[in-house]
Design a protein around this nucleic acid. Structure first.
Lengths: 244, 244
DNA sequence: TAGTGGTCTAGACCACGCC
DNA sequence: GCGTGGTCTAGACCACTAA
């Protein structure tokens, strides 16, 4: 049995267990392919009752950090088309149906980060980033012009990829190829008018209104790992938000 | 002791208890001012263990339907400035700070519902609605032009109110005066260009881009009770969305 | 001081996945 | 058949609120 460290704080036991497991998950101690130790094992290790471990794991499951399968075990929650589609993609067709967009990469380059990049990604000035530009279609209509910047340091070799090698669901790539798991994203949405690029790639009229979505994605320890600016033609789309 | 009815479905006990309590809350059986029966009492009434009731109540608390206070009891979760501000108001200043807007009511009228009203509010064609128009300021700047439609049938006398009697936080009014508790809201956000009204009331240039937020608010049994269209100048604002 | 919810334990039995 | 998580019980003790 292992004591819960003083860094666990003096709160309830189930919270200390939760924090400890969180640290271990953030360290990448549990690959997404195989299960965490069972409740029994963890309970023995921490010297608490199984119900206390259960409560900690249930909280982590509610926060989408782990996923539990009866009969199989508890796993670190991985990205896949399903999760990306329903959790991180909030644009819906006018009829309310959710569909996954397709993507065409326009460019993939390595460059020095702009001031905005450095601010959002918490980088040193002039630090290198990899930039991906792409157009996304929804229901066979050009709908989104996207500019993505990620720190070069976190994603070695991403800048060397071929345009055709960039998959549609980027968070799967971050996870499977670089071990970076996006857990949370914060979006700020404003209205703008179409500029030259929007005219070219989205087929909008100059001055047409469009939705600007600025997203910063973070790992579960709060490190920002991606700045994504999406410019959307909302003639046939809407951004969807559910306030419960 | 009271049996859980067959309408409770055959699922886990804690879910049946949850559903039963949900029905009773939706019926308005528990005024927001005084507590639900204690866990002990509910356990005795349903013939289950206290832990089972606790689990049901914890779920309801997580869904913001009830709020629990150690030493006092469990209450139906009511609206107030705090909740409205942080839960249902998603516009933030450019600096990221959340501030509550002020409001000036332009008009309060009773009229026949439009087709859009009838669709969103699930009303018969031509059914009466009360319409409130107002301008909202954020940081002493005109920022939002809002048109609100609610079914006249659900809010008797609302149409007779004086403009000055309409409070800033409407959901508090709905709750305290009409017993309608807004539990959930669904928003669809698009970009548009400023029309004559926006020019007049928001001081925008004709053709300037603005954010259109269309919100349908529901009670906890899913009845839509309000259609609200907000047109926002996002020069100094952004709509904020947190994807966890 | 009595009553409420909050934490924690210990153990039973069930449902599911895999070998 | 075994090990996993899911449900349910029973009871102890603590922290907080109100009278």
């Amino acid at each position: 049995m292992e004591r819960l460290g003083p860094q666990s704080g003096g709160g309830p036991l189930y919270r200390q267990v939760r924090e400890q497991l969180l640290r271990e998950i953030a360290q990448g101690r549990y690959p997404v392919t195989d299960p965490l130790p069972s409740e029994q094992k963890l309970a023995a290790r921490f010297g608490v009752a199984q119900g206390t471990v259960r409560r900690a794991l249930d909280e982590l499951a509610r926060e989408n950090l782990v996923i539990r399968h009866q009969g199989r075990g508890t796993f670190v929650h991985a990205h896949g088309p399903e999760r990306d589609r329903f959790h991180f993609f909030h644009l819906v067709a006018a009829d309310g149906e959710r569909r996954l967009p397709t993507s065409r990469v326009l460019s993939l380059t390595r460059r020095r980060g702009s001031q905005a990049d450095a601010l959002a990604l918490n980088l040193a000035p002039q630090a290198r980033v990899v930039e991906i530009k792409r157009v996304r279609d929804l229901m066979a209509r050009r709908a989104i012009l996207e500019t993505i910047a990620v720190p070069d340091a976190l994603f070695p070799d991403l800048g060397n990829l071929n345009k055709a090698q960039v998959p549609n669901t980027l968070y799967e790539l971050y996870q499977d190829r670089f071990g970076v798991i996006v857990h949370r994203a914060v979006e700020k949405i404003t209205a703008e008018t179409a500029g030259p690029e929007d005219v070219t790639y989205l087929g909008l009229d100059r001055g047409a209104p469009l939705l600007r979505i600025e997203r910063v994605a973070q790992t579960l320890d709060g490190t920002p790992v991606e700045l994504r600016v999406s410019r959307c033609d909302t003639t046939h789309l809407a951004y969807f938000s559910d306030l419960v």
